[in-house]
Amino acid sequence: MKIIDVESEPIHKNPHGVDARRIYNRDHGQAIHIELNTGQSLNKHITPVDVFFYVLEGTATVEIGDEIQEVEQDHLVESPAKIPHRVMNISNSKVRFLVVKMPRPAEPTKIL
């Protein structure tokens, strides 16, 4: 059994400049733990594979294509491949969420 302590994982350098920790990285999928402080957001980007966001803490504002919606703790949002998307924290408290990509992308994410 392998157990990952998220807080012990290094922050992965990323184009969004946020606290992102890769906690699972296999050919069939990838999971990244992201923490956004108030006012932080992911840059709008396109991933080459399907993604879902699972909110662990707080209320995130998620933009996928032309849709924008607030998403609370314990909610999951699907984001299809090749559709522009981003997650923002416009609340007064931190937001923590998982990003799960399936399968693990063979191409890089495209920042818009």
Rank of each mutant, 00 (worst) to 15 (best):
V100F: 02
E67S: 09
D19M: 12
S79V: 02
I68A: 10
H12M: 09
Q40G: 02
V51Y: 05
I68R: 14
D66H: 11
D50T: 04
D27K: 15
I34N: 08
P103S: 02
Q30M: 07
R22S: 07
E9G: 03
V95G: 00
S8Q: 11
G17E: 06
I68C: 08
N37Y: 12
H28V: 07
P105F: 00
L42S: 13
E57H: 10
Y24G: 03
F97P: 02
P105V: 00
V87C: 12
E35A: 14
P80W: 00
V87T: 06
K110E: 08
K94Y: 09
H75N: 06
R96P: 00
G39S: 05
E7L: 07
S79D: 02
V71F: 12
E9K: 13
E72V: 05
K2A: 04
A60F: 01
V99S: 10
N92C: 06
P105Q: 00
T59F: 09
D5V: 00
G17P: 01
Q30V: 01
P108I: 04
Q40C: 05
V55W: 00
V49W: 09
I111Q: 14
L36A: 09
L76G: 05
H16C: 07
H45G: 10
V87I: 08
V49A: 05
S91V: 02
D5Y: 05
M1Q: 05
D50H: 15
H16Q: 09
I64W: 06
E7Q: 11
S79W: 08
S91F: 12
V99R: 03
D27C: 12
H75D: 02
F52N: 06
L36M: 10
M88I: 11
E78W: 15
N92D: 09
V49N: 09
D66A: 14
D27I: 09
R22I: 07
Q69F: 13
H75F: 09
L76D: 03
